[in-house]
Design a protein around this nucleic acid. Structure first.
Lengths: 216, 216
DNA sequence: CGCGCGCCCTTGTGATCACATAGCGCCCAT
DNA sequence: ATGGGCGCTATGTGATCACAAGGGCGCGCG
């Protein structure tokens, strides 16, 4: 017997729920590169029919988060070194611009929030929580970029993150982390100083650093 | 009675056909900004069921080519001036990089092809063919960027074109064109000279010029 | 014991249907 | 004449089914 939905709860469609959950899993590296998925499997996991599963998958394929074999099988991306370099270059281009646009609007409260997120990152390092590390690291960047008031650029950056997601965890394994990324400190001090050139350099460095581990 | 498909023809799924056609119509400005579409209408137009129509629309929504109202109605984008500025900035960032990467690989044959496309653009100006103008203008850029061997960047650029599509025709109306964009000449001479700084400037100017007409 | 072939079953595609809802127009009352 | 309310219909969502094709596994042959 169906129970009435509490009227305050925003009705979120089934495919939206499937989409959001899969998207987060991919972006935060909870799926391995090249991992195969099936529509019926996804549908069963979320206890919905194939239709919403198909829509969610289509959407993720369109965003480059999943790839479609010629016969229609879906799997997460396996990136070539060239593709990784390209995506890192895109991150660099767009994120430097976003940071630059956020700078004039970055007040103390924002910098405090970023500081707090940086501490969360430390926790994930101590707990060796790869997925949590990726999530809070991206949260650091997203919090800053949100201030740029540039939704299209932010969306584009997030689709790049999405494409890098499964591969990023592989990176985490090779990384001997002892704390938050070193360049986050530089980003914070450049923000405090209102120093745009330093900020651009710090963001570019932060975005590009991980790349080296992946391409060799 | 069904006729056997010629075996050489690549079997392209129904939703792919719908997707490609709609995508081209949007990118080349054949649909007005804010134009409403219905799944059943699209399905009828292409003589398919609602399923492929839904998938094609979902895909285009994911790429930002179409927007979904809260109740799920789909329509093309109506861009605010701020959004247009943002998209132009994205074009500038990515296309300058693509041009820069294409430069070392740009041989005579490529420059000849670009020249030929430029002539096609002249034809569309004479014929006052707005959609053809947009199509061949983008073809000019795509042909150059293809040489950059950077598929992810090119794909990202194309989704920006897609978002600007319906609005670009509005631009065309305000433009008193007498020939190909002036900056195309600069792009070509920079390519011939192998002059990267000039090329970057020319591409940025070409991409940004139209913007001014749209934001005031 | 290894390799290749064929068959079955898994999997994606497209059509159709039932249902809920939002938007729109029409009608009536003031 | 105009504004508001009501009801119909157009429209999106999700489920289910039929079908075709591709991949993987096992069997049989060398």
């Amino acid at each position: 017997m169906l129970v009435a939905r509490p009227k305050t709860e925003p009705v979120t469609s089934a495919h939206e729920r499937v989409y959001r959950t899969l998207r987060a899993r991919i972006m935060y590296g909870e799926l391995d590169p090249g991992q195969a998925l099936t529509l019926r499997g996804i549908a069963a996991d979320f206890d919905v029919s194939m239709t919403p599963a198909r829509e969610a998958v289509r959407r993720l394929v369109a965003e480059g988060a999943l790839s479609l074999s010629s016969s229609g099988r879906v799997s997460t991306l396996e990136l070539t070194p060239e593709r990784i370099e390209e995506l890192a270059a895109l991150r660099s281009l767009i994120e430097v611009e976003l940071a630059s646009r956020a700078l004039p609007r970055a007040h103390f409260a924002l910098i405090d929030r970023l500081q707090a997120i940086n501490n969360t990152i430390s926790d994930t390092v101590i707990r060796k929580d790869a997925s949590g590390y990726i999530r809070s690291n991206l949260e650091f960047h997203r919090t800053l970029y949100l201030r740029a008031q540039a939704p299209a650029m932010l969306a584009m950056t997030e689709t790049v993150w999405l494409q890098l997601g499964p591969t990023m965890r592989a990176l985490y394994g090779r990384l001997k982390r002892t704390g938050p990324p070193q360049y986050h400190r530089l980003i914070l001090s450049a923000l405090r100083a209102g120093d745009e050139p330093s900020l651009r350099l710090a963001v570019r460095s932060d975005v590009t650093q991980g790349l080296r581990l992946l391409t060799n």
